[in-house]
Amino acid sequence: MSKFIRQHGWSYLFILPTILTFSVFILLPVLASLVMSFGKYTFRDGLVPITPFYKNYVDAFTTQGGVFIGAIKNTLIYSIFTVTTNIFVGLILASLIQPLGKRLQNFFRAAYYLPAVTSAVVIGMTWRYIYNGQWGLANFILTKLGLITEPIRWISDPDIALGSVILSAMLTVPATAVVLFSAAMGAIPKEYYEAAELDGAGPVRKWWNITLPLIKSVTLYLVVLYTIASFEVFERVYTMIPSGVANATETIVTQVYQQGFVQFNYGVAAAQAFVLFLMIASVAVIQFRSLRSDVEY
């Protein structure tokens, strides 16, 4: 026993704080959340069983006229548009800064990265006023350009509010994508391009035939990263449209927040959070599948 301690004691001591906080604040809460999603919790009575045991999962989709289904739909629409745009814009910008000198590369990367360090709360609030119907920047610019004559009610018209939220996210330069794409492109051996040049390939051919195939794994990683982040969208919506517009901008997480911490239906909130988990898990599984058939160089 003392030999065991002498040999491994330090190892366990090194991981002790991590394991402790991990168990108390991640592992146990995840399990507790699963249990709570099948019961009714109140601070007075604790956790009591419900019938049928999966009632919270039914309620999750039916409560308040099924607003959660709409929230999932909104989240998916948000996700499809923002992830596609972000990956595409990130890829293009990284490709374009690639041939520049070190200093210029750093300058542009910094310009693209700066807003990403700002809290989503501040970004959401800023866009709220960019979209202000009377004096907002968006209507001002579009009017000056002669594109509109009537002011657009960006975030007060339920028909377009979700579109406005999506637009604001699409117009955010995807900083992580730019940095990771440009790191991946920088790691491609120069000889590949030189060989292609000897064969008479132009910049676009080289990009299409060499760069794109070789950054496939980073692309997949980014797609998953951005998809997960978009599934969890909350701050941007919560600060841009605090009280919502006719449920048009409810997302999965705004619903979890609403059910759990405004309505205090803890079980339903936990059930909804697990629906989010299943969605994220399926995205991750799809990624691992595609990664298995990946090209390495």
Partner: peptide
């Protein structure tokens, strides 16, 4: 630890609050 990385933080909100 690795297996929990994929779990969204929203899942732990309710029990952690309790």
């Amino acid at each position: 630890i690795l297996s929990t990385l994929m779990i969204p933080p929203q899942v732990t909100l309710v029990p952690t609050y309790v």
